[in-house]
Nucleic acid binder design. Structure first.
Lengths: 241, 241
DNA sequence: TACATTAATTTTTAATATCCAAAAAAAATG
DNA sequence: CATTTTTTTTGGATATTAAAAATTAATGTA
């Protein structure tokens, strides 16, 4: 959870018992999507305690740093990405959640486009993408964080078009459907899905086709952010979009 | 925000600049409901800084205390109530949110039955109920917290029957409608409302009538918590209940 | 005892979501 | 180049839910 270079000075003195001081950390639940599966970016801790165990990627909060900025910093350090969709999940504040520190952690989840990230950086940090349904056990309460994030993702996806955050700028309807099937963990009817997502006029059909995903090829679309902003300003209400 | 007796020792030394240390606090957005209006419990700070200004009720987090426990503690100290509906709202973590401290605050909102609370205690603490649409300006980012809480309440009320948390155990359908109208900030159709809330078989009709609210009198109902638990365990999904 | 007020039920209508199958386009195969 | 295979794409009938209107019931008050 704590990157070596971000540990508070006190940590260096006594690694295992810093219970006399309040620490604040943030942990990132970083989702990606590839070939039908939701993926999570995790890494093997390289420092004690809990060295070698799988963990979410996080950091202590710096004194002069906004909580949301801390998550963005972590994300950029690991993936090289700025301007990522990111949202607060929940505070993990049990007094005994971390045996080493009295530390509360702000869970924040992010949605990443798997084409964009910096593969070198990720490798350097020992981070890896894992299918969310084949995750190893994570340290501390990180398993719980992941469960909570998946649940929140389901809820959120019903009313906000966050699925597009996991796809490249141009995408096909079948690809989008595949994202939602992964989030909701169930199959959707292709006809109804297409009808619904197109009904809001939020997808702009392009000339090009994507020929990689299938033989026939499907038309590419892009998301009309401008129109979306207009609609939401007027309190528009989506049901699965 | 900080009750006198809960200030960390350091606060006493220099009241206005404790930026070298991370503090964690919680602030409670406490809602009640009376005669058609949502109410908020706030108080006038009796200690510097910001003495005399209106504020949410909060406290610093103790070292050995869960975050959720801190909010419960605050709530009991002020209202005498335990077992109150309470949920995390959001973390307020801007580095400059508090001019005196480097302090992040966990906003937590609570729903109170206005009959139950301890009026003496509330008065002792200088706390008062105010209509949410006639609030004075609050300290720090507390205005934002209230806005966020109202928004969250709207969202939540669409899928969870939290309206009942604001009413006594026995209540009438028109009363319940009135609660939802206050939350959603719009009028609802009485016929459709009744049909919808009764459709889930979550309200148990009683023999008695409430004669205070109208001439004819309306039947009292109570909420069937057992059935609700069953339904939600099986992943039942309400749309406005 | 007529009148006003609110509660409660029933019916009708409109809107929305759900269900289902067949045709068209392109590539792969022989 | 005819045939098969795969995947995209499209529409209409049906069920479900929400909105609106009209009606009846109970009670207090003028």
């Amino acid at each position: 959870m704590y990157e070596e270079n971000e540990k508070p000075a006190a940590v260096v003195k006594d690694l295992y018992q810093q219970k006399d001081k309040m620490y604040v950390a943030t942990d990132c639940i970083i989702f990606g999507f590839d070939s039908g599966n939701l993926k999570l970016l995790i890494f093997k801790r390289r420092v004690a305690p809990l060295q070698g165990e799988w963990s979410l990627i996080g950091s202590f909060l710096k004194l002069e740093e906004d909580v949301s900025a801390a998550a963005k910093r972590v994300l950029e350090e690991i993936t090289g990405l700025k301007d990522v969709y990111m949202e607060e999940l929940k505070v993990y504040g049990a007094a005994d959640r971390d045996p080493g520190y009295r530390c509360i952690s702000v869970g924040q989840y992010a949605l990443i486009r798997l084409n964009d990230y910096d593969r070198e950086l990720v490798k350097e940090h020992g981070a890896e993408w894992h299918d969310v349904d084949k995750l190893p056990t994570l340290v501390l309460d990180h398993d719980l964080m992941v469960q909570d994030a998946l649940e929140k993702l389901k809820q959120k996806a019903r009313f906000k078009p966050i699925g597009i955050e996991l796809l490249p700028e141009k995408f096909t309807i079948p690809q989008l459907q595949s994202v939602y099937e992964a989030i909701f963990q169930k199959e959707l009817d292709a006809r109804n899905f297409r009808k619904k997502v197109l009904s809001h006029d939020l997808l702009v059909k392009l000339e090009e086709k994507d020929k990689l995903g299938s033989k026939r090829g499907a038309f590419l679309y892009k998301f009309d952010h401008r129109r979306y902003d207009q609609l939401t300003r007027n309190g528009y209400d989506f049901g699965i979009w």
